[in-house]
Computed example of a mutant assay.
Amino acid sequence: MSRHILSSLAALLALAVPVAAQQTGGGAEVSAGAAWSSTRGAIVGIGLEGENILQSGIDLGLEYREGEKGQDGRLRLRYVHEMGDTRLGTDTRLILSGLHSRSNWDDDGYATARSRLGLAVSARVAPRVRVHGGVFWQEDAIDDIEIDTSPLILSEQGHSDTAGIELTLSFGEIDHRQLPGHGQMLDLTWTNAFAGDRHFDSLEMNAVIARRLAPDWALSLRLGGGAIEARDGQSLSIYDRAFLGGKAPRGFGIGGVGPRDYLADVTDTALGGSRYVLASVELRRDISERFMMGAFVDAGSVWKLDGAPVGAGGPVDDSYDLRSAAGLSLYWKTGLGIVNVSFAAPLSHRQHDSLNRVSLNLISSF
């Protein structure tokens, strides 16, 4: 049986398994389920999502999955203190956030962990303009590197941290960020990481335009891109590079777009890049209050590494090359977010890209 047929069965089985969810009080919801995939085998998972728990201003997100070939988990906390109208603007908020995640799957070739803390202030400075600025600290780690992983990853093994400031300007209004039906939004984010082990600057742009063509039909256009540059004579770490694939563009595996260290039967490791672009056009129809379907065309590219990296497969090709795919998507609204199943046919790709014609993702609302 081909891998693509197995992937299709994985998505169908994941949807067929009943999901148990119940209100725990205080705005929290628990969800549990099971799935199966051709690369990771049987997987069971549990999640907890809470918003403004016990009217405390605390939001909570907890996800854990485990299978015969690995596990991953993520804990997210956020405290929002509403300050009302201040000299900074209207609807001012003080936001304290924390995240810890860890992933260790056999097909990745190594385990990763991330801890992040942030303190920010957000305010509306004009009717359709919001400013969000603050400081952050982040620690990352790579360990349990397998023998067939690119030697370029070995130099990143261990722990390193970074800290700095972030500033986001948001223009416009959109009715729903994950499933937009009407409105337009432009986010510009500048990051300056100047402390810790890793120093870099980044500038990212994300734009969404959506219009209702009829009560049950919506057309949306998404555009994104970014540039990341190492500072102070450093090389850009794999922790800070951009990776595409999985959720965007659909039709490609996680990290499936962009520079790779590939040598047949030796290594096949995604390396990311310091430049990226994304675009997506989707026509979506509401089937019911909780179910939707859409047709889409996605495109994207990641490119540019520091220097002239040489891996197990020789010199790494980090040139620009736009990939694209077209397909159909199904959406299911749950308490933990939106479950998205996509069936995609790649239109343009490179020989060693990681393709994923059927994908199953949870788009968290946190």
Rank of each mutant, 00 (worst) to 15 (best):
A242C: 04
G258C: 01
S324T: 01
W190Y: 02
A141Y: 07
R323M: 09
H132D: 10
G246V: 10
L6H: 08
G294H: 07
E68W: 03
G272L: 12
T191M: 04
W190A: 05
G300T: 10
Q157S: 07
V121A: 03
A16N: 03
V297M: 14
Q23S: 15
G335P: 13
W137D: 07
F243W: 04
D232C: 02
F343M: 15
A210I: 12
G45C: 04
A113C: 07
L152D: 05
M205S: 10
L236E: 02
P259K: 00
G245Y: 00
S170E: 11
D91Y: 02
R76F: 09
G118H: 10
I228M: 06
W332D: 15
S354T: 14
I46Y: 07
G335I: 05
R76K: 14
E173P: 04
L328Y: 00
V125N: 02
E68D: 11
I153L: 10
A345W: 08
P180N: 07
R275F: 14
G27A: 14
Q55I: 14
S301T: 09
M293S: 13
A214W: 05
L360P: 10
S364I: 08
R65W: 08
G57A: 11
L213R: 06
L15W: 10
G255E: 00
I287N: 10
V257T: 07
D108E: 15
S170G: 12
A270S: 14
V121Y: 03
D72T: 02
S280P: 11
S274M: 03
A120V: 06
A141M: 05
A214E: 12
R177L: 08
G26T: 01
R87P: 01
D286K: 09
T112H: 09
I43S: 01
G245P: 03
L15T: 13
S364A: 12
A308V: 11
G181Q: 06
Q71A: 07
G258Q: 03
D91E: 11
E139G: 14
L99R: 09
S31G: 14
G164A: 11
P309W: 06
Y239H: 11
R130Q: 12
A207F: 02
G311T: 10
A230H: 00
I153Y: 03
M293K: 06
L152Q: 04
T39L: 13
I254R: 12
D59L: 04
D161V: 05
M205R: 03
